[in-house]
């Protein structure tokens, strides 16, 4: 299946890749011999760093107690506290919209045809902290192929459960519930994107988005949708929760980009949880393979 980027990007917005592949950070870190490296070299080095040994996974405790999941409260420690006893069985996921096989799946049936994979990804929060997380899950592309979206489908939208009784954070209108996020279909089909079901080989805990969440490692964490109950294929760009809440601060794309600051803080650096000094933030969170998805786009305008 061939999926093209939407045709609504004017060619006037075409930016040479060199401008958005971040190289300054790399140059700062690399030895002097590499100082004159070409852009291609920088991209390769970023890949090398992505596999480097300075990305030690965070502890299970850090990953499961420091969470942004406003459905369970707005403090980082709230979700671990308030999600205790949250039942993730039975759980239904509705697949609808521009898809050949719209259906409601029991979570077991949703997952059954796929083999779980273990992948260690960097996780970069828009608040300038980061972690390294050993996820378990299934490639998003496999699942989407199975649902068989119509050729007219250009976007996929994810929705979190709406149940203020079980998700006490939803009793306050901090955000517009239910939490809704979305991806362009070609982003969702990228081999790096996945549905997460576990961490460190253990079944996902509710504070991390059980039983089913998205993982898009080159985007800020808020692009992920947790405790998903609905997946909708559409031809229009979905409205997304944080974009509705503060459109000047949170865009639809939300690609990790050290050169585009959040209005209230710099995105060029991040604090890896467990580390004392900040480290440089990498373009696309150090996953340059996704750059081709955004070729020709002005990433400053499409933040």
């Amino acid at each position: 299946m061939l999926i093209r980027p939407p045709a609504d990007i004017p060619s006037s917005e075409i930016t040479p890749e060199a401008l958005y592949v971040n190289r300054r950070d790399f140059l700062g870190r690399a030895a002097g011999a590499l100082a004159a490296a070409s852009i291609g070299g920088a991209a390769l080095a970023a890949t090398a760093r992505a596999q480097g040994d300075d990305d030690k996974p965070n502890t299970y405790e850090d990953i499961t107690t420091y969470n942004n999941f406003y459905e369970f409260g707005t403090d980082k420690s709230d979700p671990a506290e308030n999600a205790k006893g949250f039942k993730t069985r039975p759980w239904t996921v509705k697949v609808d919209g521009m898809v050949k096989k719209p259906a409601e799946y029991q979570i077991e049936d949703f997952l059954k045809p796929h083999k779980l994979e273990d992948r260690v990804y960097r996780h970069r929060c828009v608040e300038a902290w980061s972690m390294v997380i050993p996820w378990q899950g299934i490639p998003m592309a496999e699942v989407i192929k199975r649902f068989d979206p119509l050729p007219s489908a250009k976007f996929v939208q994810f929705q979190t459960l709406l149940d203020p009784q079980r998700m006490p954070g939803q009793q306050r209108a901090v955000l517009q519930w239910p939490y809704t996020e979305g991806l362009r279909l070609d982003e969702a089909m990228h081999p790096l994107a996945m549905f997460g079901t576990g961490i460190y080989g253990k079944t996902l805990l509710p504070q991390n988005g059980a039983p089913l969440r998205t993982i898009i490692p080159w985007k800020y964490g808020f692009k992920a949708t947790k405790s998903i109950v609905r997946i909708t294929f559409t031809d229009t760009m979905p409205r997304t929760t944080w974009n509705l809440a503060a459109p000047n601060e949170y865009g639809f794309y939300a690609n990790v980009n050290p050169e585009v600051d959040h209005p209230r803080w710099t995105q060029s650096k991040e604090r890896r949880i467990g580390e004392f000094r900040r480290r440089a933030t990498l373009m696309f969170n150090g996953y340059p393979a996704v750059a081709s998805l955004y070729r020709g786009m002005d990433l400053r305008a499409n933040y």
């Binding site: 965070n58 405790e61 850090d62 107690t65 420091y66 980082k76 420690s77 902290w129 604090r271 949880i273 467990g274 004392f276």
Partner: peptide, 14 residues
């Protein structure tokens, strides 16, 4: 930060 206690949680600086 320096003694490894976890009184403030995972991100003591913030």
């Amino acid at each position: 930060l320096f003694l490894g206690t976890r009184i403030l949680g995972a991100n003591p600086i913030k």
